[in-house]
Design a protein around this nucleic acid. Structure first.
Length: 578
DNA sequence: GTAGGGTTAG
């Protein structure tokens, strides 16, 4: 009798140990495998007699939550409930979080009621999870109200998490200054702000383009003895890069190492990407060397950045070399890698190679995305294959790939250039999406296209339609229609628009004047052209090379004492000095 | 030994 009991107890503790071990090992399993193994373990746990404790179930389900499988997690809780395992506050809190992540805050609040009903007392985690749920649901105002209520009614003393959630929410809706106020409030109180709080606000300041204010706050934080961590540095490095301040970003990296923090592959990738996009792939390569020296391994993102960087510069051979290098290191190229390469071939007008690669990756069974199609379509148009492009456009839709706004811009632009304006217009009119019909870029393409296809009236109508829709104008749109106005002699309209451009938020630029002057010169209206040339120069703009060419060709024909002659002389003398 | 907030790369 005693013996049996002993054996049973041994079996029970041993299996508990075994289960714990398997739960722990789940953390080292990734993605789909983790879900599969977790589900299998869960089934085994349900078979056990006695049933494992709620703690073990919580641990297992948490490992599923960590990989964002919220519905799965909730369904498992439902099942253990059916098996009669009593829930605890941890389980309830995790469930609330799952509902919040699934955009079901309401269910979260329903669970709060259940907690009370079951005689539990919600804790700060419960409330914080709910406040965060409101933030996630874009109900920041409601989140702040709940926060105030909890504090006012002493239901829950706000802790660093709660403050973090609210600061995050305020920043998310653009109220960075309110968040900063709350930070100042914390500094004066007993719940002192941590690095997280500073990081959120610095990041938000940067998103508001106030990078220097962020840097000031960073300095202030350091003075207060709050230590920055890798996330803080990653965020600042990224923001500096976004504003073209790569040198300072690189200095930041040095800074963080001096502080004893180790930058990760992601830190380097931020810099590498930025250098590549800027066109300085050489600097990016130096960054890669620096990361390798630190024992970090470039990943697919690193290689993709380099490949894209080279392709953007048209240095396709270098891009191919990088590709070889990554394959040698067993890093599998993905669709982004191939999109860059296809773009590189297209840029170099090596359309056959682009088409070949496009076919090859499909044969490999790789998923082709809308960017692949867009890249290919653009390449086809630019290499003078409009009909192949149009075939591909049909094919992608037949395959179930929806065109996006870029697809339509590429298509309509390509078609207009190939004198297929009427068909382009037909496509535009048949656009299902209301959003796309409100795209100023599409209008600009069509207006320009119609005028160049000999349909200026249609161009003018389209512009009026655009105004009627209340779409926001940009300089390019104005420049395009101004050319039409001057070509068609619609000078009243033209001059009116020229004057109103500032009100529309787009001041005339150098192109604006070049366009007008060129039209006038081509129409041989030299006097009028001279007036605009002068205005242009007074505004600090300068004729571009094509305007200049026309001007120079006029020299023999303009009279000795004409206004135009003086201007040309002035221009050529300035030109000589420069 | 189970739960809640922050950054990012294409």
């Amino acid at each position: 009798m005693n013996c049996t009991r002993l054996v049973l107890r041994c079996y029970s503790t041993e299996s508990t140990h075994h289960v714990n071990q398997r739960i722990r090992s789940l953390k080292h399993t990734s993605g789909v495998t983790r879900v599969e193994e977790a589900l299998q373990l869960f089934d085994e746990m349900l078979q056990r007699q006695p049933l494992p404790s709620i703690i073990q179930f919580n641990q297992l389900i948490t490992s599923i939550v960590k990989i964002n499988q919220y519905s799965t997690a909730l369904s498992l809780y439902k099942r253990i409930k059916l098996m009669g395992v009593p829930s605890d506050l941890y389980a309830m809190n995790v469930s609330i979080n799952c509902h919040c992540r699934l955009n079901q805050v309401t269910y979260g609040f329903a669970l709060l009621a259940t907690i009370f009903k079951q005689g539990h007392t919600p804790d700060s985690t419960t409330y914080n999870t709910l406040v965060n749920g409101l933030v996630l649901a874009d109900q920041v105002f409601e989140a702040v109200e709940l926060f105030k209520k909890l504090r006012g009614e002493k239901l829950c003393e706000p802790d660093q998490f709660m403050y973090g959630t609210i600061i995050n929410g305020l920043c998310k809706v653009g109220h960075t200054s309110k968040a900063l106020e709350l930070l100042r409030f914390m500094e004066a109180g007993s719940c002192r702000p941590r690095v997280q709080h500073y990081t959120i606000i610095m990041d938000s300041l940067c998103k508001d383009k106030m990078v220097d204010d962020a840097l000031l706050l960073f300095a202030e934080m350091n003075e207060k003895g709050v230590l920055a961590n890798v996330i803080t540095y990653n965020s600042l490095i990224h923001s500096l890069c976004n504003f073209g301040r790569e040198t300072e970003a690189a200095k930041m990296l040095g800074h963080m190492e001096a502080e004893g923090l180790s930058p990760g592959v992601d830190t380097f990738n931020i810099l590498i990407n930025s250098f590549c996009k800027q066109g300085s792939v050489k600097d990016a390569e130096l960054c890669v060397e620096a990361m390798v020296r630190r024992g970090l391994h470039p990943d697919v993102i690193t290689y993709n950045a380099l490949i894209d960087g080279y392709c953007l510069r048209g240095e396709i051979d270098e891009a191919e070399q990088v590709l070889d290098g990554m394959v040698e290191r067993d890093i599998v190229p993905d669709i982004i890698t191939y999109n860059s390469l296809i773009n590189g071939y297209c840029k170099k007008k090596r359309i056959d190679e682009a088409r070949h690669l496009f076919q090859e990756i499909q044969d490999k069974g790789l998923f082709i995305d809308v960017i692949t199609y867009n890249t290919m379509l653009q390449g086809l148009f630019q290499s003078g294959n409009p009909s192949v492009a149009r075939e591909l456009f049909s094919k992608m839709q037949a395959k179930g790939q929806f065109p996006d706004i870029c697809t339509y811009r590429i298509m309509l632009h390509g078609m207009c250039k190939n004198f297929q304006c009427s068909e382009a217009l037909a496509i535009f009119r048949s656009l299902g999406s209301k959003e796309m019909m409100k795209d100023v870029e599409l209008y600009t393409i069509l207006i320009d296209g119609c005028s160049k296809c000999g349909m200026p009236k249609l161009a003018v109508e389209l512009f009026d339609e655009l105004l009627l829709k209340g779409l926001k104008l940009n300089v390019r749109t104005c420049n395009v229609i101004l050319r039409v106005y001057w070509q068609e002699g619609l000078l009243v309209k033209g001059k009116k628009l020229l004057r109103k451009m500032g009100d529309y938020g787009c001041l005339p630029n150098s192109v604006t004047y070049n366009v007008i002057v060129q039209v006038l010169l081509k129409k041989n209206e030299c006097q009028e052209a001279a007036i605009f040339l002068e205005e242009m120069i007074n505004q600090g703009f300068f004729p571009d090379s094509s305007t200049f060419k026309i001007l120079l060709s006029l020299i023999p024909n303009v009279g000795q004492d004409s206004h135009m002659r003086t201007i040309i002389q002035k221009l050529t003398s300035v030109e000589g000095k420069v």
